[in-house]
Design a protein around this nucleic acid. Structure first.
Lengths: 330, 330
DNA sequence: AAATTTTGTGGAATCGATTACACATCGAAG
DNA sequence: CTTCGATGTGTAATCGATTCCACAAAATTT
């Protein structure tokens, strides 16, 4: 590896001068500058960021903790984060917890040891230990998707989004509305969305039937199973089903179609998330557009603010709005 | 920030001893080890990786250069890479070129300055300047998706995959087969797949009609447009269309359905890539399954080999196989 | 012409770790 | 009772940059 010392020697100056040229700081004669630049060009020298960071305490790296990489939500989020950070010369250090909660803590520590300038966490399940870890992380931190007390967050209003979607179904005349959710340990998707669904039903004095409420995980397959369970267990058939993610909705549709139901005539289906797929399944899926890129951008902006104005920026909560996309599945 | 010196002081030993405890190297008395561990536990100390790397020349970070983050291909690839690397304690530093070729070079330099232990490049367009940059990178390097001379690569056999898909259509009795491709500057997807398509037609003495061959970019919208162009321009209507990506195929289907064509009765459609969506559009899309996770895993394994046995490992090319998924669109 | 400011440069400390080397102690072998 | 290998610990150099400080020469102000 070629170092600043080698450059200094070849250019016949001290490494201090080379550093000045590199950082455009202090005084350097035009002549010296040219010699140094020539040698740098010639040798293809690139300064060692690690040595630099060790001294300056800045790494220009932001750690991103994701529950799962290969989901549309995650990649759109990262896309948004990258859009903002890249312009400022920041890099993303990616970690993937694969939905294992212990890893969230492990990776938070790891990111700290790598001196990242900030951390963006896309969390699913928030537990006390994680909160404690975040507390004494002492690095600019922003959480996305889940509300965390006393911490900057970028969230969607999951409660109202689900409530509104349920109300849309109600407005279309549905009285018997089933629900496919996920583990309530996921506060936003699992808990708040279910609450929204329930709130809408209550407000309109509609029946809340336990057998109409099933839980899956984040894939198509479990949507299929959940729909199957609902239809097999329920004594009375619901006329609509609200799924908390598009994948679940697609799975439900899959089962319904296979079983000879017509969508939306026999049963209406609504999803949430506005996945690319939702537009092209048939019938096209009515869903809720959460702008994940935007969430990523906002989170990145927050992190940059915190990095650039330490102490000044206070913890704030950004709630992004959502948009119902009405299509043919209802 | 809390340092090794602080730990040493509090534990009443030298920092050498702390380092030994940390790395389980050399001799440390049980008593000293316990004191040190206690202090570490108490303070929540995490060693600074940058300082460590500066000395050891290892960073446990692998740089990944992607053409675009928010695509299924990319996220599945990263998923595979991460699966292998995480087990060995490696982290991923992600860079996104957003399809701008200059950025590939810029990021390669950047990754070098960050002392990554290896680089995995998912390239699209390979130009001479990039090749030169790779040449003098001097870091373990693996390219995915594109063949590069004298460099380790993990690729799919795009030529035969496309040829086989075309032959499947031919076997189904199609004689007039249209094609929706992408810019041939993309050697694999743009060039080789088109060659495969053409080769199949030639081998079976089928007509090769210029108007039946259109080019799009990597999205649904351009598949729609390409299909439209084909049907509007062509004097004779093709009975099948082969698209080089699923998104393009879905776009084509979208246009066909809107225009009242029935798939596959009037026109058959085949895609490539086995996107999640392909399974759930209707009719379900016949496509080619490239195992991107596997490609990521192989690339990661190659990188690890190169890192762990420098010099020993020679450049090799891994060609992954593919699998036709026959569904209802043909 | 003297005093001061601006410009240009290098020496050396520093960041937080690892590690070669020196040295001390101790039990066992000769 | 010496000798030697194993065990345990610390000193100091090192990695590759940045940056404070000192100092000299040139330019500018008094």
């Amino acid at each position: 590896m070629i170092t600043i010392n080698a450059i200094a020697e070849q250019a016949g100056v001290s490494r201090t001068t080379v550093s000045r040229v590199l950082n455009r700081s202090g005084y350097v004669s035009e002549e010296a500058r040219k010699r140094v630049l020539a040698v740098i060009e010639e040798t293809g020298y690139v300064p060692n960021e690690y040595a630099k960071s060790l001294r300056t305490k800045k790494t220009k790296v932001v750690g991103v903790v994701l529950p799962k990489i290969s989901t549309e939500t995650a990649s759109r989020l990262v896309d948004g984060i990258d859009k903002i950070l890249a312009d400022e010369g920041y890099q993303i250090l990616l970690t993937n917890t694969n939905l294992e909660p212990e890893k969230e803590i492990e990776y938070l520590k790891l990111l700290k040891s790598r001196n990242v300038d900030g951390v963006i966490l896309s969390a699913t399940n928030i537990n006390d230990e994680l909160l404690k870890e975040i507390e004494n992380l002492n690095i600019p931190f922003v959480a996305v998707g889940q509300e965390i007390p006393d911490v900057s967050t970028v969230v969607f209003d999951d409660f109202y989004a689900a409530k509104e979607m349920a109300e849309l179904l109600i407005n279309r005349g549905h009285q018997k509305i089933a629900f496919i959710g996920v583990d309530p340990a996921d506060r936003s998707v699992g808990h708040s969305r279910k609450d929204g669904y329930l709130a809408a039903l209550k407000e309109h004095d509609l029946p809340i039937v336990d057998d109409w409420q099933q839980t899956g995980i984040f894939d198509v397959e479990s949507g299929y199973k959940a729909m199957k369970t609902i239809l097999e267990k329920a004594t009375e058939r619901p006329t609509a089903v609200l799924a908390v993610t598009d994948r679940l909705a697609v799975g439900a549709m899959q089962y319904l179609k296979e079983s000879g139901y017509r969508i939306p005539e026999n049963i209406a289906v609504a999803g949430m998330g506005a996945s690319e797929m939702s537009k092209y399944v048939s019938p096209s899926l009515t869903t809720m557009d959460f702008n994940y890129e935007r969430a990523g951008e906002e989170a990145a902006r927050q992190i940059l603010n915190k990095i650039n104005r330490p102490g000044e920026e206070k913890e704030k909560k950004i709630v992004l709005n959502y948009r119902i996309i009405k299509r043919n599945s209802i």
